[in-house]
């Protein structure tokens, strides 16, 4: 009996060892990045990473000497607007596909599906020309307008809306709700979780854009944080690793915090929306 117990304890111990080892490996770049962000650039350059001369100097430098706050604000505004727009337009088109009967509905839905197969990366040339001719280059609008809606979001919400019990629609019909009322008072609140998931997804999508903003924005007024970081890393602060790491940390820490809070929603939503 004792033998078995010992074996079990040993097995458990081994599991923890593996768990911790993996966590260390995975998070190494992360921790090293954060750690060096507190070190003076001189020590980093000398390879003296085990210095304990920690300070917030790099952070202060990043915040005061670089436009990082401006980049951050640009990213926040653009991601938030994109998210709200996608929630509105995707839920509207998903509603049409689930609750409205109209001519060519199947055809239109097929078009949406086809859209999901087409990579945006392959369409940058005409889209660049469109944005240019609309006079939107180097403007927030350049980063928002092409992403106001998404076929994926429509598809995901449609899957979710379809699960709305038919009886709720019938009950609403008996009370005489029109489509606007049914959409806003019943379908949206009923599918709250999917909307949160899509919101997170579209926000992150906009936040992580790289190629398109690189093409369409070229001043600090509209440059978003991803491209801003590259700007910092490749330009004036070429070898100031401490400050670059601090800039990275400034961006990553809030997202990580949001992620921790939203993890529960995100996980269930992802599995529900995507894989079912």
């Amino acid at each position: 009996m004792q033998n078995i117990d010992e074996k079990a304890v040993l097995k458990r111990l081994m599991t923890y060892v593996v768990l911790i080892a993996l966590a260390l490996v995975i998070l190494a770049p992360f921790f090293i990045g954060i750690w060096t962000s507190f070190l003076p650039t001189m020590s980093i350059a000398k390879g003296d990473l085990f210095n304990t001369n920690l300070s917030l100097d790099n952070y202060i430098a990043a915040l005061t000497k670089t436009p990082i706050l401006r980049y951050l604000a640009n990213s926040l505004v653009i991601s938030t607007i994109t998210m709200i727009a996608q929630l509105i337009f995707c839920s509207m088109s998903a509603y049409a596909f689930v609750f409205l009967k109209f001519k060519y509905r199947k055809l239109f839905f097929a078009l949406f599906l086809v859209t999901m197969m087409l990579p945006f990366e392959a369409q940058i040339i005409p889209n660049f020309q469109t944005i240019k001719s609309l006079g939107l280059l180097d403007n927030y609008a350049a980063l928002i307008v092409p992403f106001l809606t998404s076929a994926f979001g429509t598809f995901m919400l449609r899957q979710s809306f379809k699960q709305t019990p038919k009886e709720l629609k019938e009950a609403a019909d008996i009370e005489g709700l029109n489509h606007f009322q049914f959409y806003s008072r019943i379908v949206l609140p009923y599918n709250k979780i999917s909307l949160i998931t899509l919101g997170a997804y579209s926000f992150l999508g906009a936040w992580n854009q790289y190629l398109w903003p690189m093409l369409t924005t070229f001043s600090n007024n509209s440059r978003i944080i991803q491209n801003g970081l590259k700007q910092l890393q490749s330009e004036e602060t070429f070898n100031d690793w401490g400050m670059i790491q601090a800039s990275a940390a400034i961006i990553v820490i809030p997202t990580i915090i949001v992620l921790f809070i939203g993890q529960h929603y995100f996980k269930s939503g992802m599995n529900e929306g995507a894989v079912k």
């Binding site: 019990p165 009886e167 709720l168 019938e170 009950a171 019909d173 008996i174 009370e175 005489g176 019943i186 609140p189 009923y190 709250k192």
Partner: peptide
Amino acid sequence: LPPKDRNLTMVFQSYALFPF
């Protein structure tokens, strides 16, 4: 006539309660 103008109510098998 649409349902609302028929002046009736309905109780559903699944109750059709709004969960939110």
